[in-house]
């Protein structure tokens, strides 16, 4: 990979008291790819994702976007920089309609004095644009004026993805998008991710679901004990490899060869000892 990463992080650290959530993590996302981030519960995936989307400010380390160092002080900073996040609980207002939700928090006002003085919303343009975004992504709903609470889980997910796609100019981060969905709806969301990739938008996909990861990802970032332990290919490696890496039964050497760890009952006690010994 000689390309420049869209989003890159080096040596990220985040501590909460004695707990080290991110322990010198690296991260690379390349243009136009779907990068899956996998890891066991408590491995620090969410913390990593939060650091990349501005929801958490790391204690140390650096993040760069298109080669330029950035420092996000909040989610709004990351959004302004073109990184959109689809949160696990979707961040939608159920009582409001689809169009309103797509523009929630960044409503558009009418041009001219009505927008400037009366602060009148440009409802027409927002609806037209919302319909366009849904059409582009092949998302079908009865009407964009439907309240979000009348939608199925998969449709809600699709609305949240559409919102990210509409505003995310650089990166879309998705946190467990298929976790709450059935088989058919999951397939639709995966197809949606593929469409984002076709449009050239790189996607970071956090997921527990190995079959989904192997179906859609171009590369897999394996996270363990607060850091990246391996990046593997879903084509060259098996699900067993990935599961072994994230549980610590396998490890990837500097030469990229995956090998078995002797005394494979690793529980991460070594890492705990290290962080507990600090202050």
């Amino acid at each position: 990979m000689s390309q420049q990463p869209v989003l890159r992080a080096r040596g990220l650290v985040k501590r909460y008291g004695r707990v080290t959530a991110i322990d010198g993590a690296d991260f690379d996302l390349f243009p136009g790819e779907v990068l899956a981030v996998v890891g066991d519960n408590g491995a620090g995936k969410s913390s990593l994702i939060k650091a990349l989307s501005g929801a958490l400010v790391p204690d140390a380390g650096e993040i760069s976007l298109d080669g330029v160092a950035v420092r996000f002080r909040g989610p709004l900073d990351a959004r302004r920089a073109g990184i959109e996040t689809v949160y696990q609980d979707l961040a939608l207002a159920p009582a409001q309609d689809i169009a309103s939700n797509l523009f929630l928090g960044r409503e558009r006002r009418l041009p001219g004095w009505r927008g400037a003085v009366l602060r009148t919303l440009d409802v027409g343009t927002m609806r037209t644009r919302a319909q366009q975004v849904l059409d582009e992504l092949d998302i079908t709903v009865k009407s964009i004026l439907q309240p979000v609470e009348t939608l199925s889980g998969g449709q809600r997910q699709a609305v949240a993805v559409a919102r990210a796609a509409a505003f995310g100019s650089k990166v879309v981060v998705m946190d467990e998008p298929t976790a709450a969905l059935g088989v058919a709806e999951s397939a639709k969301v995966l197809a949606l991710i593929a469409r984002l990739r076709e449009r050239g938008l790189p996607v970071v996909l956090v997921s527990h679901n190995m079959p989904h990861v192997f179906e859609i990802a171009d590369r897999i970032h394996v996270h363990r004990l607060g850091r990246r332990v391996a990046v593997v290919s879903p084509h060259a490696n098996s699900m067993n490899d990935v599961v072994g890496l994230l549980t610590g039964a396998l490890r990837m050497g500097d030469d990229g060869v995956i090998e078995e760890v002797r005394h494979a009952v690793t529980t991460g006690l070594g890492a705990h000892r290290k962080s507990a010994g600090a202050p």
Partner: peptide, 24 residues
């Protein structure tokens, strides 16, 4: 019903966490 402030009022009452994550 016709300003961004109004939509924010509804969103805050409906789902405060979603409103926060949406930048309100």
């Amino acid at each position: 019903s016709r300003t961004g402030w109004g939509r924010h009022v509804y969103a805050v009452g409906n789902e405060p966490e979603a409103a926060r994550l949406s930048g309100i």
